[in-house]
């Protein structure tokens, strides 16, 4: 096991950031922590990278205890904090060189690891990091976190604020790194990225809601889900919200995801209700719950 966390809790002055969190990450696994801003992801990352000490509970990374063996851990993990953390006034190459050296290695030694990523930013190697676009900064930060060939890689919200194209490229890179045997713990607020992990944990308000593979986690969705569509989205949402049997209503793309309180839901009845509210082109179909639906159902 490359990461094991058991019963970790952490509080700040009056906020409990983590409540009795337990999970483990297998060797070579790509594990996703999925949850919104303020869910406790960053605190968990800092505890695992030895930057914070938990109030209670135990955690191991690469076989080392996060408190007692913090020096060993610091030698064998790569960490990309949430905030953009490179030196803006140093060039791409200077940044990489610096991080390589402080981790006791050189660019040359582990070039094979970062080659795929680095070739994309190499044309700009003499540009200051502050002048790079968001996607490129991300790639550089990943190179810097990888340059010392870590056994475990911690990526705290690496794709926040990055456009979908760069995000996709970034995840392709993570997949390739995983094949090289590096275990990866990554956090993200984007539910679509969750599908790309081996296993995911939903985290909200410092608590783990569920852990499973992306394929199986949707099975935890408690109800039958329906796609409801109509010509006026606003009216549709308002009407559904006032429907007496409504259990949940969430806009989802061009449809509304709807669950009903009853077990014997009747779509014709709903159709009639919506028509009486003045809506046209009404459609009601059974839908497959997505990871996001599951998260919302569990987070409620």
């Amino acid at each position: 096991m490359s990461i094991s966390v058991s019963n970790i809790s952490k509080s700040y002055k009056n906020v409990q950031a983590l409540k009795d969190v337990s999970f483990h990450v297998n060797e070579g696994e790509l594990f996703g922590l999925i949850g919104p801003d303020g869910a406790g992801k960053t605190s968990l990352f800092r505890i695992l990278t030895t930057l914070l000490i938990a109030d209670s509970g135990k955690a191991n990374v690469a076989g080392y205890d996060v408190v007692d063996d913090f020096k060993e851990i610091r030698n064998c993990v790569g960490y990309m904090p949430g905030k953009f953390s490179l030196y803006q006034d140093l060039t791409v190459e200077e940044n990489l060189n610096f991080f390589a050296t402080i981790f006791g290695t050189s660019i040359k030694e582990n070039y094979h690891l970062i080659k795929d990523i680095y070739v994309q930013i190499e044309p700009f190697k003499n540009r200051r990091a502050g002048k790079l676009s968001g996607g490129m900064k991300q790639k550089l930060a990943l190179c810097c976190a990888l340059i010392h060939k870590p056994k475990v890689l911690f990526l705290d919200e690496p794709t926040t604020g990055v456009d979908p194209v760069s995000r996709k490229e970034f995840w392709d890179m993570l997949k390739r790194l995983q094949q090289k045997g590096i275990s990866i713990l990554v956090s993200t607020p984007y539910m679509d990225e969750a599908a790309l992990c081996d296993r995911i944990a939903f985290i909200q308000n410092g608590e783990i809601l569920e852990i499973d593979s992306p394929q199986d986690i949707v099975k935890h969705f408690p109800k039958k889900l329906y796609n409801v569509g109509a010509d006026n989205m606003y009216k549709l949402i308002e009407s559904l919200k006032h429907y007496e049997h409504m259990h949940s209503v969430f806009p989802f793309g061009e449809f509304v995801h709807y669950t009903d309180k009853r077990n014997d839901f009747n779509s014709i009845e709903l159709n009639e209700y919506l028509t009486s509210k003045g809506l046209n082109q009404i459609s009601v179909e059974v839908a497959q719950p997505t990871i996001e639906d599951t998260f919302m159902a569990l987070a409620k």
Binding site: D37, G161, P189, Q204, K235, A299
Partner: peptide
């Protein structure tokens, strides 16, 4: 300008409901 970055999925939808209402 990117009003919902990092916001949880439920609140994000509540936010969009507010947008629908204002547009309406």
């Amino acid at each position: 300008d990117e009003p919902t970055g990092g916001v949880d999925p439920i609140t994000r939808r509540q936010f969009w409901e507010m947008i629908y209402k204002a547009a309406n």
